[in-house]
Design a protein around this nucleic acid. Sequence first.
DNA 1: CAGCATCCTCTTTGATACTG
DNA 2: CAGTATCAAAGAGGATGCTG
Lengths: 109, 109
Amino acid sequence: MRDYIENADFEETGFSYTLSLISGKYKMIILYCLMEYQPVRFNELQRYLGKISDKTLSQNLKELEKDELIHREAYPQIPPKVEYSLTERGKSLMVVLDQLCIWGTENRK
Amino acid sequence: MRDYIENADFEETGFSYTLSLISGKYKMIILYCLMEYQPVRFNELQRYLGKISDKTLSQNLKELEKDELIHREAYPQIPPKVEYSLTERGKSLMVVLDQLCIWGTENRK
DNA sequence: CAGCATCCTCTTTGATACTG
DNA sequence: CAGTATCAAAGAGGATGCTG
Protein backbone atom coordinates (compact mmCIF):
# COMPACT_ATOMS: atom_id res chain seq x y z
CA MET A 1 0.00 0.00 0.00
CA ARG A 2 1.23 3.40 -1.01
CA ASP A 3 2.28 6.02 1.53
CA TYR A 4 0.20 9.08 2.13
CA ILE A 5 0.97 11.69 -0.50
CA GLU A 6 0.96 15.28 0.61
CA ASN A 7 1.65 18.80 -0.48
CA ALA A 8 5.03 18.97 1.19
CA ASP A 9 6.17 16.34 -1.29
CA PHE A 10 5.59 18.67 -4.16
CA GLU A 11 7.10 21.77 -2.64
CA GLU A 12 10.43 20.06 -2.35
CA THR A 13 10.62 19.19 -6.04
CA GLY A 14 12.69 21.07 -8.56
CA PHE A 15 9.49 21.28 -10.55
CA SER A 16 7.92 23.45 -7.90
CA TYR A 17 10.92 25.75 -7.96
CA THR A 18 10.93 26.08 -11.72
CA LEU A 19 7.22 26.83 -11.78
CA SER A 20 7.68 29.58 -9.22
CA LEU A 21 9.95 31.34 -11.70
CA ILE A 22 7.81 31.05 -14.80
CA SER A 23 4.21 30.88 -13.67
CA GLY A 24 1.81 33.64 -14.48
CA LYS A 25 0.05 34.58 -17.65
CA TYR A 26 2.97 36.17 -19.44
CA LYS A 27 6.37 35.10 -18.19
CA MET A 28 6.87 32.15 -20.46
CA ILE A 29 5.74 34.19 -23.43
CA ILE A 30 8.17 36.95 -22.58
CA LEU A 31 10.99 34.45 -22.34
CA TYR A 32 9.95 32.89 -25.59
CA CYS A 33 9.93 36.25 -27.31
CA LEU A 34 13.41 37.03 -26.03
CA MET A 35 14.66 33.69 -27.22
CA GLU A 36 13.39 34.38 -30.71
CA TYR A 37 14.23 38.04 -31.09
CA GLN A 38 16.67 39.22 -28.42
CA PRO A 39 17.63 41.88 -27.73
CA VAL A 40 14.09 43.23 -27.51
CA ARG A 41 12.82 46.64 -26.45
CA PHE A 42 9.95 47.35 -24.07
CA ASN A 43 7.63 48.43 -26.84
CA GLU A 44 8.37 45.42 -28.96
CA LEU A 45 7.55 43.09 -26.10
CA GLN A 46 4.34 44.94 -25.51
CA ARG A 47 3.31 44.55 -29.12
CA TYR A 48 4.27 40.88 -29.14
CA LEU A 49 2.25 40.16 -26.03
CA GLY A 50 -0.94 41.54 -27.49
CA LYS A 51 -2.62 43.78 -24.98
CA ILE A 52 -0.55 43.69 -21.84
CA SER A 53 -0.53 46.88 -19.81
CA ASP A 54 2.65 48.82 -19.03
CA LYS A 55 2.28 47.98 -15.40
CA THR A 56 1.98 44.27 -15.86
CA LEU A 57 4.80 44.04 -18.36
CA SER A 58 7.09 46.13 -16.23
CA GLN A 59 6.28 44.06 -13.17
CA ASN A 60 6.93 40.79 -14.96
CA LEU A 61 10.22 42.01 -16.34
CA LYS A 62 11.40 43.05 -12.90
CA GLU A 63 10.65 39.66 -11.45
CA LEU A 64 12.36 37.86 -14.28
CA GLU A 65 15.36 40.12 -13.81
CA LYS A 66 15.41 39.49 -10.07
CA ASP A 67 15.36 35.76 -10.74
CA GLU A 68 18.28 36.28 -13.11
CA LEU A 69 16.59 34.84 -16.12
CA ILE A 70 16.78 38.04 -18.14
CA HIS A 71 19.15 40.97 -18.40
CA ARG A 72 18.12 44.62 -18.60
CA GLU A 73 20.37 47.01 -20.45
CA ALA A 74 19.45 50.69 -20.21
CA TYR A 75 21.02 53.22 -22.56
CA PRO A 76 21.35 56.67 -20.98
CA GLN A 77 19.80 58.72 -23.75
CA ILE A 78 16.69 60.66 -24.57
CA PRO A 79 14.32 59.26 -25.56
CA PRO A 80 15.16 56.32 -23.31
CA LYS A 81 16.12 52.98 -24.76
CA VAL A 82 16.11 49.72 -22.84
CA GLU A 83 16.92 46.32 -24.23
CA TYR A 84 16.07 43.00 -22.67
CA SER A 85 17.84 39.72 -23.34
CA LEU A 86 18.25 36.27 -21.81
CA THR A 87 20.98 35.55 -19.31
CA GLU A 88 22.93 32.31 -19.59
CA ARG A 89 20.68 30.93 -16.91
CA GLY A 90 17.67 32.07 -18.89
CA LYS A 91 19.02 30.47 -22.04
CA SER A 92 19.48 27.16 -20.28
CA LEU A 93 15.86 27.25 -19.18
CA MET A 94 14.72 28.05 -22.69
CA VAL A 95 16.42 24.93 -23.98
CA VAL A 96 13.86 23.04 -21.93
CA LEU A 97 10.88 25.29 -22.65
CA ASP A 98 11.61 25.03 -26.32
CA GLN A 99 10.76 21.36 -26.04
CA LEU A 100 7.26 22.40 -25.05
CA CYS A 101 7.07 24.30 -28.30
CA ILE A 102 8.08 21.23 -30.26
CA TRP A 103 5.61 19.05 -28.35
CA GLY A 104 2.86 21.54 -29.14
CA THR A 105 3.65 21.55 -32.81
CA GLU A 106 3.61 17.78 -32.97
CA ASN A 107 0.52 17.29 -30.83
CA ARG A 108 -1.73 20.09 -31.95
CA LYS A 109 -5.24 19.06 -32.88
CA MET B 1 16.72 45.70 -39.71
CA ARG B 2 14.36 43.27 -38.09
CA ASP B 3 10.74 42.91 -39.16
CA TYR B 4 7.96 44.06 -36.94
CA ILE B 5 7.20 41.45 -34.34
CA GLU B 6 3.61 40.97 -33.35
CA ASN B 7 1.24 38.90 -31.32
CA ALA B 8 0.04 36.85 -34.24
CA ASP B 9 3.55 35.43 -34.45
CA PHE B 10 3.21 33.89 -31.04
CA GLU B 11 -0.27 32.52 -31.41
CA GLU B 12 0.84 30.35 -34.26
CA THR B 13 3.58 28.66 -32.30
CA GLY B 14 3.32 25.21 -30.80
CA PHE B 15 4.39 26.84 -27.58
CA SER B 16 1.19 28.83 -27.46
CA TYR B 17 -0.82 25.67 -27.96
CA THR B 18 0.99 23.75 -25.26
CA LEU B 19 0.57 26.60 -22.79
CA SER B 20 -3.13 26.68 -23.46
CA LEU B 21 -3.33 23.12 -22.18
CA ILE B 22 -1.28 23.47 -19.03
CA SER B 23 -1.61 27.05 -17.88
CA GLY B 24 -3.34 27.89 -14.66
CA LYS B 25 -2.30 27.56 -11.08
CA TYR B 26 -2.76 23.83 -10.72
CA LYS B 27 -2.72 21.90 -13.98
CA MET B 28 0.98 21.22 -14.14
CA ILE B 29 1.00 20.16 -10.52
CA ILE B 30 -1.88 17.79 -11.12
CA LEU B 31 -0.07 16.25 -14.07
CA TYR B 32 3.08 15.98 -12.03
CA CYS B 33 1.26 14.21 -9.24
CA LEU B 34 -0.26 11.74 -11.68
CA MET B 35 3.14 11.06 -13.18
CA GLU B 36 4.55 10.22 -9.78
CA TYR B 37 1.70 8.33 -8.22
CA GLN B 38 -0.88 7.27 -10.81
CA PRO B 39 -3.50 6.07 -10.54
CA VAL B 40 -4.59 8.72 -8.05
CA ARG B 41 -7.94 9.34 -6.43
CA PHE B 42 -9.76 12.64 -6.12
CA ASN B 43 -9.02 12.95 -2.41
CA GLU B 44 -5.37 12.16 -2.84
CA LEU B 45 -5.00 14.87 -5.44
CA GLN B 46 -6.71 17.30 -3.17
CA ARG B 47 -4.33 16.53 -0.35
CA TYR B 48 -1.33 16.75 -2.63
CA LEU B 49 -2.37 20.14 -3.97
CA GLY B 50 -2.58 21.69 -0.52
CA LYS B 51 -5.77 23.66 -0.23
CA ILE B 52 -7.51 23.48 -3.55
CA SER B 53 -11.27 23.56 -3.39
CA ASP B 54 -13.47 20.74 -4.67
CA LYS B 55 -14.79 22.99 -7.35
CA THR B 56 -11.46 24.08 -8.70
CA LEU B 57 -9.99 20.61 -8.69
CA SER B 58 -13.00 19.14 -10.39
CA GLN B 59 -12.96 21.86 -13.02
CA ASN B 60 -9.26 21.41 -13.75
CA LEU B 61 -9.66 17.66 -14.05
CA LYS B 62 -12.48 18.07 -16.52
CA GLU B 63 -10.43 20.33 -18.73
CA LEU B 64 -7.43 18.04 -18.64
CA GLU B 65 -9.70 15.16 -19.53
CA LYS B 66 -11.25 17.10 -22.39
CA ASP B 67 -7.78 17.86 -23.72
CA GLU B 68 -7.04 14.16 -23.50
CA LEU B 69 -4.08 14.50 -21.19
CA ILE B 70 -5.64 12.47 -18.39
CA HIS B 71 -8.01 9.54 -18.14
CA ARG B 72 -10.89 9.27 -15.67
CA GLU B 73 -11.92 5.84 -14.52
CA ALA B 74 -15.06 5.64 -12.39
CA TYR B 75 -15.91 2.50 -10.44
CA PRO B 76 -19.66 2.04 -10.00
CA GLN B 77 -19.76 1.38 -6.29
CA ILE B 78 -20.79 3.02 -3.08
CA PRO B 79 -18.97 4.90 -1.76
CA PRO B 80 -17.82 6.11 -5.19
CA LYS B 81 -14.28 5.56 -6.35
CA VAL B 82 -12.65 7.42 -9.21
CA GLU B 83 -9.10 7.06 -10.38
CA TYR B 84 -7.18 9.46 -12.56
CA SER B 85 -4.18 8.61 -14.66
CA LEU B 86 -2.18 9.96 -17.58
CA THR B 87 -3.10 9.10 -21.15
CA GLU B 88 -0.36 8.26 -23.60
CA ARG B 89 -0.59 11.82 -24.83
CA GLY B 90 -0.28 13.05 -21.26
CA LYS B 91 2.72 10.85 -20.67
CA SER B 92 4.47 12.23 -23.71
CA LEU B 93 3.95 15.74 -22.39
CA MET B 94 5.28 14.77 -19.00
CA VAL B 95 8.51 13.61 -20.58
CA VAL B 96 9.06 17.24 -21.45
CA LEU B 97 7.72 18.74 -18.23
CA ASP B 98 9.96 16.42 -16.28
CA GLN B 99 12.88 18.28 -17.79
CA LEU B 100 11.63 21.36 -16.00
CA CYS B 101 11.88 19.41 -12.79
CA ILE B 102 15.46 18.51 -13.50
CA TRP B 103 16.32 22.07 -14.48
CA GLY B 104 14.83 23.28 -11.22
CA THR B 105 16.83 20.85 -9.16
CA GLU B 106 20.05 21.84 -10.86
CA ASN B 107 19.41 25.58 -10.82
CA ARG B 108 17.80 26.13 -7.48
CA LYS B 109 19.35 28.89 -5.41
C1' DC C 1 10.38 55.77 -25.08
C1' DA C 2 10.01 53.44 -20.90
C1' DG C 3 8.18 53.50 -17.36
C1' DC C 4 5.27 54.76 -12.39
C1' DA C 5 0.95 55.84 -9.60
C1' DT C 6 -3.67 55.42 -8.90
C1' DC C 7 -7.85 53.48 -9.36
C1' DC C 8 -10.90 50.07 -11.09
C1' DT C 9 -12.50 45.57 -13.43
C1' DC C 10 -12.97 40.87 -13.68
C1' DT C 11 -11.30 36.29 -13.89
C1' DT C 12 -9.84 32.80 -10.92
C1' DT C 13 -10.14 30.67 -6.71
C1' DG C 14 -12.15 29.64 -2.18
C1' DA C 15 -15.93 28.69 1.46
C1' DT C 16 -20.01 26.64 2.58
C1' DA C 17 -23.78 23.69 2.08
C1' DC C 18 -25.75 19.82 -0.13
C1' DT C 19 -26.30 15.07 -2.88
C1' DG C 20 -26.21 10.15 -4.88
C1' DC D 1 -16.18 9.45 -1.68
C1' DA D 2 -16.60 12.40 -5.38
C1' DG D 3 -18.50 15.52 -6.67
C1' DT D 4 -22.27 20.09 -7.76
C1' DA D 5 -24.39 24.69 -6.76
C1' DT D 6 -24.22 29.10 -5.00
C1' DC D 7 -22.05 32.93 -3.26
C1' DA D 8 -18.08 35.67 -1.78
C1' DA D 9 -13.16 36.96 -1.77
C1' DA D 10 -8.67 37.65 -3.57
C1' DG D 11 -5.43 38.85 -6.69
C1' DA D 12 -4.08 39.46 -11.28
C1' DG D 13 -4.57 42.42 -14.81
C1' DG D 14 -6.37 46.78 -17.33
C1' DA D 15 -7.24 52.02 -18.12
C1' DT D 16 -5.85 56.45 -17.61
C1' DG D 17 -2.87 60.14 -16.77
C1' DC D 18 1.75 61.71 -15.85
C1' DT D 19 7.12 62.12 -16.00
C1' DG D 20 12.30 62.38 -17.09
